[in-house]
């Protein structure tokens, strides 16, 4: 639930443009800096959000990234209407990836994205339905 004094922003993540992937995370990092948050939490949010944003582009043809900054936490919500994750437990395993060879050539698809999002956030919630899409929520305590 949003508190009345929370700060919100959101981005459309273009799933057809790999070059622009990461723009939402880059902008979020800048905004968090402007808000005066400490460097450690900004870096954790930036890494986790960027991993999620890349996932949205390579697996789900984009979606929406929402950021909410409350007094005591930051909530990142990444929502797509892509193909969904069939087996979340398997997807969470380090090294497991369904990325294509082309994506690997660009430096991604090592199967570290979701585990790294879990490592950098204080709470990671994945809600996914095959054929309908995925909602990833990451919470960072301030």
């Amino acid at each position: 639930m949003s508190q009345s004094n929370s700060i919100l922003w959101s981005f459309d993540v273009d799933g057809k443009n790999f070059d622009s992937a990461g723009f939402a995370s880059q902008s979020t990092k800048f905004k968090l800096r402007q808000l005066g948050l400490n460097g450690d939490i900004i870096k954790r949010v930036a890494i986790a959000m960027y991993e999620g944003e890349i996932n949205m582009v390579i697996h789900a043809e984009g979606g929406v990234a929402n950021v909410e900054v409350d007094e005591d936490k930051i909530i990142i919500t990444l929502t797509d209407t892509g193909k969904g994750i069939a087996d979340i437990e398997q997807a969470m395993r380090e090294g497991f990836s369904t990325a294509t060879e082309e994506i690997r050539d660009l430096g991604f698809g090592a199967g570290m994205g979701l585990p790294n999002m879990k490592k950098n956030s204080d709470e990671l919630i994945i809600d996914s339905a095959v054929g309908k899409g995925t909602k990833v929520t990451m919470i960072f305590a301030i």
Binding site: S20, S25, A46, Y50, I54, G107
Partner: peptide, 13 residues
């Protein structure tokens, strides 16, 4: 690698 994601990765890190 020389794609834009190299710079974005450097930026996040």
């Amino acid at each position: 690698l020389v794609n834009p994601q190299v710079i974005r990765t450097a930026l996040m890190m």
